[in-house]
Amino acid sequence: MQARWPALLSRLCAGVLGGYAAAAVFAVWLSYVLPMPRADAVATGVLISFALYAGVIVYAFAAHSLRRLWFGVLGFTGFFALAALALRPAGAGW
């Protein structure tokens, strides 16, 4: 991997910020689609969100190119954000 600072910073942002967004959005989507009471679904989403977060951070430093990395992180987050938006129940916080 490149040790140059801009590239490193880019990977850090993708992993730390993008990873958080990806994990949170995925957990929200999961909490909407799981066939269980909503409190249980939310709890399940939160339980596994950190595993996903860690996975994205690791991927951010493993991906071959920055373009692929950002495309992957933003694409993943965007996809589940849209899916969650379409599914959101009335009274949701967004």
Partner: peptide, 26 residues
């Protein structure tokens, strides 16, 4: 991992908000 889960609801508040809204008692 369990250490994270202890205060997970602090870190992942958005996930609760997305189902329970932004009210003070959410």
């Amino acid at each position: 991992y369990s250490g994270l889960i202890f205060i997970a609801y602090v870190y992942m508040t958005p996930v609760i908000t997305a189902s329970y809204g932004t009210a003070a008692d959410a």
